[in-house]
Design a protein around this nucleic acid. Sequence first.
DNA 1: AAAGCCATGTAACCAGTTACATGATTCT
DNA 2: AGAATCATGTAACTGGTTACATGGCTTT
Lengths: 187, 187
Amino acid sequence: MKDNNTKYVVLGLLGHTPMSGYDIKKSVATRMSYFWDLSYGQIYPTLKELEKNGQITKKVEIKEHGPNRIVYTITDKGLKELQTWLAKPAKKEVHKYEFLLKLFFGDQAYPELNLKHIQEFKARNQKILQTMTLFEESLKPILNESEGHYYILLTILLGKSISQASIQWADNASKMLQDHVGKEVKV
Amino acid sequence: MKDNNTKYVVLGLLGHTPMSGYDIKKSVATRMSYFWDLSYGQIYPTLKELEKNGQITKKVEIKEHGPNRIVYTITDKGLKELQTWLAKPAKKEVHKYEFLLKLFFGDQAYPELNLKHIQEFKARNQKILQTMTLFEESLKPILNESEGHYYILLTILLGKSISQASIQWADNASKMLQDHVGKEVKV
DNA sequence: AAAGCCATGTAACCAGTTACATGATTCT
DNA sequence: AGAATCATGTAACTGGTTACATGGCTTT
């Protein structure tokens, strides 16, 4: 099987508690949204593959009301695979800032456009910061309930730091641009 | 043609000055490394497509020594296409922090491993910060030579802010983890 | 002599998204 | 009545990487 990260996200989550593909999707969306994303198109085929390889086992929960759930549980083999991956150095971060691409070419656009891109970037980061802060507040009182919570808190703190830095940059960059454009006009 | 960002990066760079596929690759790698990346596998096919659509024109430079260069120049049609894209709102940022994935599942690994991932993340960011700072220093004295330089400076400043925030988080997270692990042992 | 840069390009892969299909239940 | 949520899944597509082929020039 390919050495795909999707596999390890699934194994890691199942390492915490057994769950379905649907649960995995929700878990990633709510708890890892800042630094990761998964679609059903990745999750369901991965679950099948992992089961075929004996790294997880499945159990169908028949519901009288609503659709059946397929709940997966990690096996010893799966746990070993996860731990091997955890011990390997992480690949470097990958970022795609489309708005920075537009700002980079800002001399080929109208100044108001560049300011708009910066403002929208700021707004996106304010939303992230808000989400992260709420998440942090909800985690703090239950920090001792599970060892895992502590590590989740650390990932939230990075999200907070980076979005705060981004917001500050946006304010600063807006001012710089306005001053710069003002100068241009005078000349 | 597909609405692929590669296309706009190429158009944007050719909007500054005519250049070859090889130059584009180098330009992205040195000046946009923080927030974007392109491979030859994307660049060369895109150049062909753009030429076919009349958005750029090509001119072969025959060299006596060394390989020929194919230099591309943007056309009015290409410039219009670029400006239309610049005016559209940017898509939200995409991040892949593999190390955060590993840290998120940190309760399933040895504590030293988690500290190692954080240290390596810090090291990566120190390197970025250094590169960005050097770039900033080289740009400042020639800021008035071209309007474009100002926008490039803004993108560098965001890279600096985020890597600084990341380094601070790493120091803080290391301390927090060490304290946390210390407490565990006592119990 | 070896390594690395200049320079172009493609084929085979791997990764990830989107749209669709299905259908019951619960909330507004 | 309509929207949202629960729940599983696939096919077609788009996006992007890697490895390879070619070959001369320059630096160590």
